[in-house]
Structures are given as structure tokens and as C-alpha cells.
Amino acid sequence: MRKIVLANATEFNVVRAIESSIQDGRKKSFTMTFENYSLDELKTAFMNSSNIKIVKLYNSDGDLVRVISDYDFYDIQIKPLDGSEHIIVNLSEGDMLEKTVATLQKKIENIDVPIEEDMDMMTLLELKNYKKSILQSKCRKTIYAGENVDTAPYGSQHFSYTQDDQRNIESLFSIALITKLEQPYHADGETCAIYGVKDIVNIYMTLQKFKLYHTTLINAYNRYIEDISDIDLLKGLDYPSSYEKFPQFYKDSADAAIAQGNSVISAMASLYKI
């Protein structure tokens, strides 16, 4: 049985304990589900701020899996779950300036990294959704980081591929197809330079194929996760290294989609005889 130990050494068996974001991601909440305890007993324990200054979580094997702090009592409620009465206790993260600044910094970077949670405390469905969000974030960061592209006048250069970069490069590509004229752009860390039409098309095609590869890969991950019932296998999935160990069915489907997408991207340039 999973266990929670409060700062005053009070112990409770817990059915579930999940940490999640609240208030548009500006705060975290910690939600615990209990059974076989009275409402008064849990109120006495969790409404005392000194008791919840530090909360320790232990898994069913008795191993310490998480220590949380900086939480305040939020609310407590009774709900019928799975045919019995459960008591749900919610803690809310305190207002801490440094955490607010960190959250804002993540928004500035336009990369929403999911909150780390205790996988040992999750149901199979919760774990699947959590792994999807974590792996999706890693996929997005990989795409935004971009790729190296060989250009005729400047050799190998690195181009990031954030959402703004994608719009800029797609605009360059469209103008190049219409006007057949050179255009200014810049690689990462480089000053603005003039690129010929073929180089602009090459930059666009390389980065689009790079994006296609990773979006197809994460789709394969999502399909695979839906079919997995082995919790240890789910916990061990990482992006993109785990893909090589996927069953061949998922890899064949992804490879076919990538090949078709690449053909379409290449055909776009061929139509304009570039």
C-alpha cells in the first residue's frame, strides 16, 4: 500500500497521489485520495500548516519516491469512487517568486514542459497520458532546435526551426518559387546573407523533411503507447531513442508515411523546375 508521511510523522495509506498544474500553469497542486479514514482525522492532519511543511511519499515497496514542500492546504472533499467513499485532499503550491519567474521563462521560450510527476503513483491511463505529454515536449524541442543544411556559398550551416522560423522560411520558399530571385536570410548565430533560389528551396525542404520525420515519429509513439499495458515498458520510453526498439509494425507504418511525405515535399520544387 502506498503511504504518505507528514512532517509530524503522521502516516496515512493513500490510494492515489498526483501532482498537476493549476491556474493556467502558474501553480502546482498536489491531490491525494484516501479511504478508510474519517473526514475529521484528515482535516486535523492536513489543515495544520506545520504538518504539511514537508510531505514524503512511499511506494508499495516502502521506498521513498518523492518529498514535496512549499504547499498550503487548499480544500478537502468526499467523493464516491469505485463503489466506496473516498476523501480527496488538495494542496496548493505557495506563491514563490522564483517559481513564477521560471514559469514565465518557459512561456517566453515557447516550450511548455510538463510538470514532473511520480509515475509510481499513477494508474495505467494516467501514466499513458503523462508519457505522451513528456515525449511530445521532447519532440517539439527537437524540431525547434533545427537541423544542419548544406548551402552552396556557405557550406554547412545550422538553422533553428521554431514556429517563427517555420513561418519565415516558408515565406522565403514561396517567394523564391514565384520570383526566382535571391533573398536575404541568416543561419543560427550568423549575420544576414544572400541565398540563391536553389539554396532557399534546399533549406526549406531539409527542414520540412526534418519536421515531418519527427512529427511522424511522435505519432508512432502515441499509437504504441495506446497499445501498451506493461507499466515498466511505459516508464522506460524515451524520445527518440526508444523508437529503434518498437515492434516492426509501428516502424513500417511510420516509414511509409515519412517516404510519402518526403515525395510530396520534393515534388513541390520539381513542379517549378528548380
Rank of each mutant, 00 (worst) to 15 (best):
E98I: 11
I115Q: 05
K141V: 03
D188G: 01
L177W: 05
K106L: 12
E109C: 00
D118S: 08
I200A: 10
G146V: 12
V201W: 04
I134Y: 09
L135W: 02
E190H: 13
M121P: 01
I200G: 08
K198F: 08
D188S: 07
E182W: 09
M96K: 12
D164R: 09
L81N: 13
M119G: 10
E126F: 00
D164W: 03
S156Q: 11
T123M: 05
M96H: 07
G189K: 08
E109G: 01
K128E: 00
I169M: 04
K180A: 06
D82P: 00
I115R: 01
K99E: 09
G146A: 00
Q105F: 03
L181R: 12
S92V: 06
C192Q: 14
K107M: 13
S84L: 07
L181S: 13
E109L: 03
D82L: 07
N202T: 08
K128H: 00
I88Q: 05
E98V: 13
G196N: 03
G196Q: 07
Q163W: 10
E170V: 09
G155S: 04
Q166C: 09
E93N: 02
I108C: 09
L177Q: 07
P114C: 03
N168S: 15
S160Q: 14
I134E: 05
A193L: 10
K99S: 07
T100W: 05
L104P: 00
V101T: 06
D120F: 08
E117R: 15
N202W: 06
V101N: 04
V113G: 02
Q183V: 10
P114R: 05
C192K: 13
V101S: 09
F173N: 12
V149R: 01
T179F: 10
R140W: 02
N110T: 11
V89F: 02
D188K: 06
V149Y: 01
E117N: 12
I200F: 04
I111E: 13
A187H: 02
K180G: 04
C139S: 14
C139P: 04
N110W: 03
I178S: 12
E93R: 02
L125G: 12
T100G: 08
V113M: 06
D95H: 10
C192W: 13
E93C: 04
D120I: 02
E85A: 11
L81E: 15
R167H: 11
P114V: 06
N168L: 14
T103M: 10
I111N: 14
Y130C: 09
S84E: 11
V101R: 05
I175F: 04
T142A: 02
L104S: 02
Y195V: 10
R167A: 15
L135Y: 03
K141Q: 04
Q105D: 01
N90D: 10
I87C: 02
R167M: 12
L135T: 03
R167F: 12
E93K: 04
Y130F: 14
K131V: 07
T191N: 11
E126L: 00
C139Q: 13
D82S: 07
L172I: 00
C139E: 11
S171M: 13
G146F: 04
H158W: 06
I115M: 05
T103H: 05
I115Y: 05
H86T: 10
Y154L: 13
I134L: 14
I88L: 03
D120P: 08
Q166W: 11
D199M: 10
A176Y: 13
N168R: 15
A102N: 15
I111W: 06
Q166R: 15
